[in-house]
Design a binder for these strands. Structure first.
Lengths: 327, 327
DNA sequence: GGCCACTATGACAACGTTGTCCCCCAGCGG
DNA sequence: CCGCTGGGGGACAACGTTGTCATAGTGGCC
């Protein structure tokens, strides 16, 4: 800006006026300034501007587990969409389920003075955010609640979903329903396990430890588990999968086998309807989750300071006929 | 920092020293400062720091078509990964194939003084970036080349891929091979069409206008096109799909029909191997693309100022048996 | 001509940091 | 007692902006 001012033969304040479309600049002066700007390729430094004006940085931070996972990329897209409508940029990062990494990202974003934070919590300790929240940075947790702070949270109905999955399978005559879930220290995994258990009890088929295998899971551990489940004295005839990745692992393990157990997966996924058999899922909308969380965040930015809210989004069973009809 | 200094009874410079682990602060003083920092929840303002030091902002900007598309979310993930190793944050935005939006995002990122830009170009005009590039911001285009500037570019072998697809189908006896591509003003769509044409010529089956349908495509336009292709006097017996979205549209349209044409899709996608029949694809690696582009960007940041490079990543045909065997 | 209103412009401070330079004072040798 | 040294600490400017206030010039009106 200094250079522009010198080249145009005016003061930097006049350049500032031109750049900001402030009134009170003679057209011919403005033209000279614009020419200089063009010639030098000048672009206003937003950081300096925000610093001086004490205004918001126009950014929001998004910490999630893995942008590469279609579920989270759907969330990201929704967040970006809303942020854009409100004139904000999104800075995002993946924690890979590592609490330390999550913390690092969140605090880095705070150092950059994001206007707000959206976090898919990786661990259970979030008190590190208390100073930031007290300092006025709104934080919304999504998909999972924070461990030890009270804050806005947007979840999906994990328990209701798995209850429904089990109920659905039991209604088709299944009595030996297995559950393959993610690592039990992950909130959603644990909730879904609870829903599974409750569903079993409600359906009157009892809860059997031997039918449950919590993760972390990879392709081979899923394969092993499936073998075990089928070699039980009373083999599992149906499976509830705890998330989209596990569902896919199961599908891959079952590929080519006849005598497939019935399957209901938590999380919908593309092409689920085109597989044969198609896969019945507990569907919930990644965009809806992202949108709800971002809306909540912006409400806080708009001055809403009511007590922290917990929003639970509905899920819905999408029956596609993945072998529920019990032979 | 001012408040911290006052509370600790020292000058702000001393606080700065403590925050930056600079030597020359008495341990007891440092302790007082740290206590004050803790009490006030102080966090260093990175913008101010970078402004004063004239150092990099530690961010890179990523403009792509749609983070929600699994292909681009794979790219995003790879970019993030490398950026992280180099201590940078990623700011990203989706252009939705709108050149104006792309420009807006890119320039906004420049205003934020990103260290570098990664762009999946939406349009053909990129001269707006020339001043930024001249000012020292490295720019790497990925997936498609820039319209009217010479710059680093990372592409995949679009032509080679579609040539191979056609060759593969022709080798299985197909002579009526159709091509469904994206809008022809999109670079990749156009290249793939060229490859298709060349493949047809090489295979000696000729290029027939009636077998080509360029987009933009949605579910219903694809369905209509398929009907047309099958009602030709000499119907198409095989299809090459120009990208992952079109492949999925085709699969959905064909679902439930018998007498399916053979299909080869450009872009691999999850579960392609589990469909029945599985889908043969021209595979290329989103992470490889993201990694190559980011590596190139960092090379520039490290001072490499050799002439702009164009990297073309290989693709490979993954035969899965999607009906190539011609009845 | 004197005064006012108004337009166009500039000087200066400040945002939150950090780099540079300088000062104070204790300790020590002569 | 003097001068020197070095550790600990502060004053001040500057990064690139913008808000506040001041000022010079112009034209109009009584």
């Amino acid at each position: 800006m200094n250079d522009v001012a010198r080249l145009a033969g005016v003061s930097i304040k006049t350049v500032s006026r031109v750049v900001n479309d402030e009134p009170g600049v003679h057209p011919s002066t403005a033209e000279r300034v614009l020419a200089a700007i063009d010639q030098l390729g000048f672009r206003r430094n937003l950081s300096a501007r925000n610093l001086r004006r004490g205004s918001s940085t126009g950014t929001i931070g998004l910490v999630l587990e893995d942008v590469g996972n279609p579920f989270y990329s759907g969330v990201t897209r929704a967040v970006e969409e809303i942020a854009r409508l409100r004139g904000r940029q999104v800075i995002s990062g993946s924690s890979d389920e590592d609490p330390g990494r999550e913390r690092e990202l969140a605090l880095e974003f705070c150092s950059r003075r994001v206007d707000g934070l959206l976090i898919v919590p990786a661990g259970l300790q979030h008190s590190y955010l208390v100073p930031e929240m007290r300092a006025g940075t709104p934080v919304v947790f999504l998909d999972r609640p924070a461990g030890d702070v009270v804050a806005d949270t947007v979840l999906v109905d994990n328990i209701g979903g798995t209850v429904e999955a089990v109920t659905h399978l039991a209604a088709h005559g299944h009595r030996r329903i297995a559950f393959l879930g993610d690592a039990p220290d992950i909130f959603t995994a644990n909730e879904r396990l609870r829903g599974y258990r409750e569903g079993c009890v409600r359906a009157g088929i009892g809860y059997h430890e031997e039918l449950v295998a919590m993760g972390p899971h990879d392709e081979s551990s899923v394969a092993t588990t499936l073998q075990r489940l089928q070699s039980l004295r009373e083999p599992a005839t149906a499976i509830v999968a705890g998330n989209n990745r596990i569902t896919v692992h199961i599908l891959r393990s079952l590929a080519g086998t006849t005598e497939r157990p019935a399957l209901v997966g938590f999380d919908d996924f593309e092409l689920a309807d085109l597989l044969s058999p198609p896969v019945t899922v507990i569907a919930h909308d990644a965009s809806a989750l992202g949108k709800a969380a971002t809306d909540l965040l912006f409400a806080r930015l708009d001055g809403d300071n009511s007590p922290p809210r917990r929003v639970v989004l509905p899920v819905r069973l999408v029956p596609r006929g993945s072998g529920e009809v019990h032979a």
